[in-house]
Amino acid sequence: MYSKATIAGHPVHPTMLVGFPVACYTGTLVGFAVYAATGHQFRLNPAIALNVVGVGSALLAALPGFVD
Rank of each mutant, 00 (worst) to 15 (best):
residue 12 V to T: 09
residue 33 A to K: 02
residue 4 K to I: 00
residue 46 P to C: 12
residue 15 T to K: 00
residue 38 T to P: 00
residue 4 K to S: 07
residue 8 A to E: 13
residue 6 T to N: 01
residue 37 A to E: 04
residue 36 A to L: 14
residue 48 I to Y: 06
residue 56 G to I: 08
residue 29 L to Q: 04
residue 60 L to E: 06
residue 66 F to G: 13
residue 22 V to T: 12
residue 32 F to M: 13
residue 61 A to R: 08
residue 67 V to G: 05
residue 51 N to P: 03
residue 67 V to F: 06
residue 33 A to H: 06
residue 15 T to Y: 13
residue 48 I to D: 07
residue 32 F to W: 07
residue 44 L to V: 11
residue 13 H to A: 09
residue 19 G to T: 15
residue 24 C to I: 06
residue 5 A to S: 05
residue 14 P to Y: 00
residue 61 A to S: 13
residue 51 N to D: 12
residue 44 L to K: 14
residue 38 T to K: 05
residue 12 V to S: 07
residue 18 V to H: 13
residue 1 M to P: 08
residue 50 L to N: 03
residue 36 A to M: 09
residue 54 G to Q: 07
residue 45 N to R: 09
residue 67 V to K: 06
residue 34 V to W: 04
residue 18 V to R: 15
residue 54 G to S: 12
residue 36 A to C: 10
residue 60 L to R: 01
residue 68 D to Q: 01
residue 53 V to C: 10
residue 45 N to T: 13
residue 20 F to G: 05
residue 21 P to M: 11
residue 46 P to L: 10
residue 44 L to H: 05
residue 64 P to E: 07
residue 64 P to T: 03
residue 35 Y to S: 05
residue 23 A to Y: 12
residue 21 P to E: 01
residue 23 A to S: 15
residue 24 C to G: 08
residue 20 F to T: 15
residue 61 A to H: 02
residue 43 R to A: 11
residue 6 T to R: 07
residue 40 H to C: 06
residue 17 L to F: 15
residue 56 G to V: 01
residue 59 L to V: 14
residue 67 V to P: 02
residue 28 T to D: 05
residue 68 D to E: 12
residue 1 M to H: 00
residue 16 M to T: 09
residue 68 D to K: 11
residue 24 C to E: 07
residue 11 P to S: 14
residue 20 F to C: 14
residue 65 G to H: 00
residue 17 L to P: 08
residue 16 M to E: 04
residue 24 C to Y: 09
residue 30 V to T: 03
residue 47 A to S: 11
residue 68 D to T: 11
residue 55 V to C: 12
residue 62 A to M: 10
residue 34 V to L: 10
residue 48 I to M: 08
residue 63 L to H: 04
residue 58 A to V: 05
residue 7 I to R: 01
residue 54 G to D: 07
residue 20 F to E: 02
residue 61 A to G: 10
residue 48 I to E: 01
residue 47 A to K: 04
residue 3 S to C: 12
residue 19 G to D: 14
residue 65 G to Q: 00
residue 40 H to Q: 10
residue 52 V to R: 02
residue 48 I to T: 01
residue 1 M to Q: 06
residue 14 P to G: 02
residue 6 T to Y: 03
residue 5 A to G: 00
residue 67 V to N: 01
residue 18 V to G: 09
residue 18 V to K: 14
residue 3 S to I: 04
residue 29 L to K: 02
residue 17 L to Q: 13
residue 22 V to G: 11
residue 64 P to N: 01
residue 41 Q to D: 13
residue 30 V to C: 04
residue 17 L to T: 12
residue 49 A to N: 04
residue 64 P to S: 02
residue 8 A to W: 02
residue 49 A to C: 09
residue 51 N to I: 11
residue 63 L to A: 09
residue 52 V to P: 00
residue 13 H to C: 00
residue 19 G to L: 15
residue 66 F to I: 00
